[in-house]
Design a protein around this nucleic acid. Structure first.
Lengths: 187, 187
DNA sequence: GTCTATATTTAGATAGAC
DNA sequence: GTCTATCTAAATATAGAC
């Protein structure tokens, strides 16, 4: 694993949290993945809580970058379909571990307050992005459609993970493509 | 909390797992809720793993009963809309703790094998029920629609929980009602 | 800045009296 | 069947040498 020790710890924690959950991941696990001695973790992160916060911030950075990458598409309809194609293409990952951000939100919602806030800000990134696309289509129900799209993705990620079947989210991708095509330019 | 000690332990564990997560819930917590001494838990459940299995079985019983209750409706369209009304009516619970079955599946998917299997059987109950309704409508894409409906519910439960806003799942309920109304009798 | 050794806490699990 | 007291293992966190 490349990068400075802090970067390695954050990336290692992000991967381990996704694969095994936050609660089940020990700092010893993270230290081993990052190839950093256990005791040294505390030089970079005062508590496990602080490490979790850093991981959420790292997720936010990755999601923002991914969404920015979709803005190269010509129009809002193409951008929405590129979004769908992106997550449908990650079916194997969803089948094994679920959506990285969704599973994190699900677990941390049951924990202390400031982590909940950070999670909700993370989940708001793709919703706000999707709403802007629906607004560009002239939809007055853009907020509702944006929530429905992200919920469809999150829900099908959960089913894909629960049944270990990547085909589920791929089939949903095709269905959402047809749905996006069927939307009128204004509502 | 009423019932025999075993029933109290299962119900207490089910509630605590939903509110705080399985990993974060200690047997001491469960014992306190059930008003049973800590050491006595092991008389009824050899391990925490066994208690989790019992809780999943209890969920399966409750879900089956709830779905059976919907079969009093006249036709498949009415049954599907009664299903939607049922979960949209639980918005306050979803906002605080998410869907009981969904959060359980999300957490336990990251754990040992036989719990994953039990969770997938639990999640299959509403999907199979919904597929039968869509089949009764003559839809050849009943399996796809059933997965889409449950995914919409699960995903919107996650968003409702993440943002702590019951209105999200209520709005989705209305949207799904219109969707069910719009489906042709055959596909 | 880095790392080893260890302290502290807490959870799951057990032994055994009643 | 019931309950108290306790064991053991593991995880977070710290102290302090280098």
């Amino acid at each position: 694993m490349a990068g400075g020790k802090r970067e390695r710890l954050v990336e290692g924690a992000r991967l381990a949290f996704h694969e095994n959950g936050v609660e089940a991941t020990t700092l010893a696990d993270v230290a081993a993945i990052a190839e950093v001695p256990v005791g040294n973790v505390y030089y970079y992160f005062k508590t496990k809580h602080a490490l979790v916060e850093a991981v959420i911030a790292d997720h936010a950075r990755l999601v923002s970058e991914a969404l920015d990458g979709l803005d190269g598409q010509r129009g809002p309809r193409e951008r929405l379909k590129a979004f769908v194609a992106a997550f449908a293409g990650n079916g194997a990952m969803a089948a094994r571990f679920g959506c990285p951000q969704g599973t994190l939100c699900s677990e941390l919602d049951k924990q202390s307050g400031d982590l909940r806030v950070a999670c909700s800000e993370l989940m708001r990134l793709p919703i706000d992005w999707a709403r802007r696309q629906f607004e560009a289509l002239g939809r007055t129900d853009a907020d509702e459609l944006a929530h429905a799209l992200i919920a469809a993705y999150q829900g099908m990620s959960l089913l894909t993970n629960t049944f270990g079947d990547p085909a589920l989210i791929q089939r949903e991708g095709k269905r959402l493509d047809r749905w996006i095509d069927s939307l009128a330019e204004t509502s």
